Simulated assay, not measured.
Amino acid sequence: MKNLFFPIALALLIGGCASPSAPLDTSKTYQVEWIGERPLIDRSHLTVTFDKDGRAHGHGGCNRWFASYQLEGQNLSFSHAGATRMACAPALMEQENRFFQALDAVQRWDLGEHGELRLWPQEGQPIKLFAGEARRTN
């Protein structure tokens, strides 16, 4: 039981700090961990950085990507993402395409119970991102 105390206390502390009314932090690079109902392929690396001027960019797992975004309170949307044109393994390309499709569908954002940034489509599961170093959650 003692071994569970620290992780549970930490989760509660982080969850308590993750107010959905806090503004979207545009000073961080976020690591994508989940796209909808699926986690990322092991060792793949997807990122999202929000610039203050309404531009977003990052790494899609294979290619660098960029898009503009509109942010009004909890509402968030992206323009269709542009990207470099490198080819990678088919599984990485499929994951990157799912990521770009998910970005196209984003309508709002919030913070989850573990401090993760969640980008929500109208229907379905969100893209889940963490600030800084990537973490795996189930």
Results as ranks from 00 to 15, higher is better:
Thr26Glu: 13
Arg135Gln: 15
Ala102Thr: 11
Gln125Asp: 15
Asn75Lys: 13
Arg136Ile: 13
Lys128Ala: 14
Ile14Pro: 09
Leu119Asp: 13
Ala22Tyr: 01
Asp25Leu: 07
Gly61Arg: 03
Glu33Phe: 03
Met93Glu: 01
Thr47Cys: 07
Leu46Met: 15
Asn138Lys: 08
Lys128Thr: 14
Gly15Arg: 06
Gln122Ile: 08
Cys88Met: 02
His114Gln: 14
Val106Asp: 07
Pro121Trp: 12
Ser19Gln: 07
Arg108Ile: 01
Pro23His: 04
Trp65Asn: 06
Asn138Asp: 13
Leu111Ala: 07
His57Ala: 12
Pro90Gln: 04
Asn75Pro: 00
Ala67Met: 02
Gln101Lys: 10
Pro39Thr: 08
Pro20Met: 02
Pro39His: 08
Cys62Met: 02
Ser79Met: 08
Arg43Thr: 07
Ala81Tyr: 03
Ser77Asp: 00
Ala105Tyr: 01
Gln107Asp: 06
Gly36Cys: 03
His80Ser: 11
Glu72Lys: 08
Glu96Thr: 01
Pro20Gln: 05
Leu40Cys: 06
Asn63Cys: 03
Gly73Phe: 05
Asp25Pro: 05
Ser68Asn: 13
Lys52His: 11
Gln70Asn: 08
Ala89Lys: 10
Glu33Asn: 10
Ile14Val: 15
Gly73Tyr: 05
Leu103Trp: 03
Leu76Ser: 06
Arg64Leu: 08
Asp51Ala: 13
Arg64Asn: 12
Ser27Trp: 01
Asn97Lys: 11
Glu94Thr: 12
Ala102His: 12
Pro20Cys: 02
Ala102Lys: 04
Met86Gln: 11
Gln70Tyr: 00
Arg55Glu: 15
Leu12Lys: 02
Leu103Pro: 02
Phe5Trp: 15
Lys128Gly: 06
Leu46Pro: 00
Ala105His: 06
Leu10His: 10
Ile127Pro: 06
Leu103Phe: 04
Met86Arg: 15
Gln31Ser: 15
Asp104Asn: 11
Ala87Arg: 09
Gly16Gln: 01
Asp51Phe: 03
Pro90Trp: 03
